[in-house]
Amino acid sequence: MDISDHPPAGEPIQLAPRTPDEPTITVPQPPGWGFMPGKDDTAIRGILFNQDLRLHGFTPNAVVTLEELTGQAGVPSQALAKERAAIIDIVGEIDTESPGTVSGFASRTIEYNLQGRSATGLIVAVQNAKDRIWAVTVTIQTTDADNPHYAAAKTSILHSLEVRLPDQ
């Protein structure tokens, strides 16, 4: 995908599945935020970023990943626990944590400090009718968490994320 293929700012970005059973992820693109698709050989499906909010040598970004956990987690709660444990392995302590749902799927929002940056991770556990399980994650981070433009974009990204399974 080159720059001419990118949707205009403000239009939701649909991250197409790479295999027929995978969920489709739709993430909003806040005004001023660019988008870069992930490479086909990684769990990263796309990165949103805002160069205009760059501060202290860091560009605020939101990284969207999809990882299949079939065989590693038997139920959605195990997928959430596995992804939570991975965050704790990297950052140590977490600041806050809250359960929720995204598109009807169980989720967990975790706030923490990552190398001196404010970070929020939203984990969504997705299970299809064939008992395949995926973890969708969005990790958004900045060095200026009090910036109102960042705060508005963060809210939009985390609250408007959509995850859909294909018709089965």
Rank of each mutant, 00 (worst) to 15 (best):
D2R: 13
D5I: 00
E11Q: 15
I13A: 11
I13P: 04
I13F: 02
Q14L: 11
L15C: 09
L15T: 03
P17E: 03
R18G: 15
T19P: 00
P23Y: 06
T24I: 09
I25R: 04
I25N: 02
V27S: 02
P28L: 00
Q29A: 11
W33R: 04
M36Y: 06
M36D: 13
P37T: 07
P37K: 09
P37S: 06
G38K: 12
G38N: 07
K39L: 10
D40E: 12
D41T: 11
N50Y: 10
N50M: 08
L53F: 12
R54C: 07
R54G: 05
L55C: 00
L55Q: 13
G57L: 06
F58N: 08
T59N: 09
T59F: 10
T59Q: 12
P60Q: 09
A62F: 11
V63E: 11
T65N: 15
L69V: 12
G74A: 12
P76H: 07
Q78E: 15
A81L: 14
A81H: 10
I90L: 13
E93N: 14
S98D: 10
T101C: 02
G104A: 04
G104D: 07
G104I: 06
S107V: 03
I110L: 10
E111I: 01
E111N: 13
E111Q: 13
L114S: 10
Q115R: 13
Q115P: 02
A119N: 07
T120R: 12
G121M: 12
L122Q: 14
I123Y: 14
I123D: 09
Q127E: 13
A129I: 04
D131K: 14
W134A: 00
W134I: 02
A135K: 00
I140Y: 06
I140Q: 06
Q141W: 01
D144N: 15
N147C: 09
N147A: 10
N147R: 06
Y150M: 06
A152S: 11
A152L: 08
A153P: 03
T155A: 13
H159V: 04
L161S: 05
L161P: 11
E162S: 12
E162Q: 15
E162T: 15
V163K: 07
L165A: 03
